[in-house]
């Protein structure tokens, strides 16, 4: 459905995208995962024909983004980073307006948005500007879906939304995918990667890795340990000085430590070092990496 080949884009001296190569298959939920400034928005804007790439080719639904502007615009749904709603129009008016803009009616595609719309229907007379983040997000999604697009581009739909609403939102995307809609979504929250079929980890305009979340985690090559102890902050500083350490980051209630070598004695050596340093209580366990571990490891390279 989406193919990008060697996409480059610069704004003056700032490089927004460097040699992006990826493809999104039909019916897939594809995630662009990366912090602000990674180039996610620029890539979306190229794909929905709002900006032109400096070089490289991109096709959406088999159509070239530089030449088939009208055809692409007709078949995609797009939700920009800020929830692009008319703040002074009511929920209902926003939805109706976007329906007519896309030459359709709310009734014609109600089936598709029903699940989502019923949640905001009690507030249909309320102005969009008076809705909370979670509700605006739902309304914006309804508006992007109203013309039953074949492919949906959602730019950071969960940013600034609380964790509970975020989970609900991903559940909605799951149901849309089951209906056969191809979805491309971006997010700065690494933990949301697991909700996607495939992801591209992005940083500073580069795609660090494009694969399924499982494969990306499996390709993490170093031994990874979670450490817990009483004095967490002191432990973190000490671990940084440990010779065998490759990297060490705070990870919620534990520190994640990667070792420089996979050698058999490495773990035992770490244990005895901890004892010597006075962390006799330290709990050490070998763990599987999460996407955030992978991202930081890839970013180091």
């Amino acid at each position: 459905m989406v193919i990008c080949r060697n996409i480059n884009k610069t704004y003056g001296e700032v490089v927004a995208l460097r040699d992006i190569n990826l493809h999104v298959r039909k019916g897939e939920l594809f995630g662009l995962i990366g912090p602000d400034g990674a180039g996610k928005t620029s890539l979306f804007r190229i794909l929905v024909t709002l900006i032109l790439p400096d070089s490289g080719q991109a096709r959406v639904n088999g159509l070239d983004v530089t030449t088939s502007l009208k055809e692409i615009r007709r078949s995609v749904g797009y939700m920009p980073g800020r929830f692009s709603l008319y703040q002074d129009l009511s929920v209902e008016e926003n939805l109706k307006f976007f329906a007519t803009v896309f030459n359709t009616s709310v009734e014609a595609n109600y089936e598709l948005i029903r699940d989502i719309y019923v949640q905001i229907e009690p507030f249909r007379k309320r102005r969009a500007g008076k809705l909370s983040g979670g509700m605006k997000q739902k309304l914006a999604l309804c508006c992007a879906l109203i013309h039953s697009p074949e492919i949906l581009f959602l730019d950071e739909p969960t940013t600034g939304v609380d964790p509970v609403s975020r989970v609900e939102f991903w559940d909605m995307l799951d149901r849309l995918r089951q209906r056969g809609i191809t979805i491309m979504v971006s997010t700065p929250y690494m933990d949301e990667a697991s909700r996607c079929n495939r992801i591209a980890l992005m940083r500073d305009g580069r795609a660090l890795s494009v694969d399924t979340p499982e494969n990306i985690r499996a390709s993490f090559s170093r031994p990874l340990y979670a450490l817990r102890s009483a004095g967490m902050y002191a432990l973190l500083n000490d671990l940084r000085g440990y010779e065998g350490a490759h990297s060490c980051y705070a990870f919620g209630d534990a520190h994640h430590l990667t070792l420089g070598s996979e050698a058999d004695g490495a773990e035992a050596e770490l244990r005895s070092w901890l004892d010597r340093k006075g962390y006799a209580d330290a709990q050490l366990s070998r763990i599987e990496p999460c996407i955030e571990d992978c991202f930081m490891e890839l970013a180091r390279q």
Binding site: K70, M79, P80, G81, S84, F98, F102, N103, H147
Partner: peptide, 13 residues
């Protein structure tokens, strides 16, 4: 400014 122009441009309008 509000970003609605982006959506309008990406519509068949």
């Amino acid at each position: 400014e509000t970003g609605t122009m982006e959506v309008l441009l990406v519509s068949p309008m």
